[in-house]
Design a binder for these strands. Sequence first.
DNA 1: TAGATTGTTAATCGATTAACAATC
DNA 2: TAGATTGTTAATCGATTAACAATC
Lengths: 223, 223
Amino acid sequence: MKPVAGESKPIPLSVVRRLTKYLALIQGLKGEGVEWVSSQELATALGTTSSTVRQDLSHVDFYGISKRGYATEGLAKVLSGLLGADSTWRMVVAGAGNLGRALALHEEFPRRGFIICGVFDVDPRKIGKKIGRLTVQGMKELPAVVGREKVDMGILAVPSAAAQPAADLLIASGIRGLLNLTLTHVVAPRHVPVVASRIVASVLELAHAVTFGSVLTAASRNR
Amino acid sequence: MKPVAGESKPIPLSVVRRLTKYLALIQGLKGEGVEWVSSQELATALGTTSSTVRQDLSHVDFYGISKRGYATEGLAKVLSGLLGADSTWRMVVAGAGNLGRALALHEEFPRRGFIICGVFDVDPRKIGKKIGRLTVQGMKELPAVVGREKVDMGILAVPSAAAQPAADLLIASGIRGLLNLTLTHVVAPRHVPVVASRIVASVLELAHAVTFGSVLTAASRNR
DNA sequence: TAGATTGTTAATCGATTAACAATC
DNA sequence: TAGATTGTTAATCGATTAACAATC
């Protein structure tokens, strides 16, 4: 049984990553009217084992019921809370290139409570341009906006060479977390978590897997 | 000592991921004229330990030299070869929304030998539109293009609900690997590796880290 | 009730870190 | 030479899988 109060221990990162997948899947099922889901069903849909699913969910303050599984509604609610997907987060994008632009316009973000409230660039030709309802601002404006609009997290979508300076500026402005889309490893103080969503690196990883075959044991399952 | 011929054993995915980081870093150093780098230097730059770096590089057919470290030029060459970054890869993008468009225009891809040779969408309003030098084509054209242009890998940048059908189409067309940018888990046969570059999931992961503090022990180091 | 599915403990597996002889 | 840094073996740590009593 899980300790109730006090948040107990931190959830391992590997588990948190899978929890985001469970949440996405369960929200879909809930939308289809499915009320119950078993650990085995979750496992096959996600290419893992029922044992892993149950082990993962033991970190969460929610219980399944023998013979029926987990109530999609309740589980979605608890996972949303745990992952912060039920609250609103304010974000800025550093870099108004193609990638920055795409993220600023990405519909999945507002849909899940992530509000983009500013896009910044150093290029004077980009400053003043419209991206959806936002206007690209100069990097110099960033600290003021982060402070005034209580921005929580920043997205790094600048060229590799500008990654660390842009990160430093965001951190100095008081940002609480960074999503790094550049190829460069970014260094941050311990209290500012950095998550790398390495698109180009992923393609390299894929190229390796294609060349050498079945390396991605966990990722490519079934069928 | 490593076995020379026959490729020996597959390199663990965790190691491959770090190899992509070493490569990016070393290419940068090489550009700055740095000729030698030690395992300790690589480690501090990437927030890991020198032990891990040496262990990782033991999977690679390249040797350092005591007291000097690794020759950046040679190591970059070997890593490039191993990760397929020295050959050319042909790719298509499924989905001509903001994200698909950004990836089709992303300069980092051609720079690293990943050639985007087609963008596809189901939306008739998008078909025919120009994205850089490419014209958006209907999804129906995809199999013919993949066959004719010998496309290696596909990028999934469609809405979540369309992810699996689009993946199935790509796979049926003979694609050899998939980069999945959607929130949905995609199922593929064993011989088609799928790498997920989960942008939205990464933001959820980040939201969790910001809420509960130092979870990302490995990612947020130094300073 | 009988059977399915849970939560949890124990066993296995793999990845990271430490240690150190070899060597430039 | 003396000291730094490698490659590799062994020890530790953490994550996944297996197993099973509890229970709906």
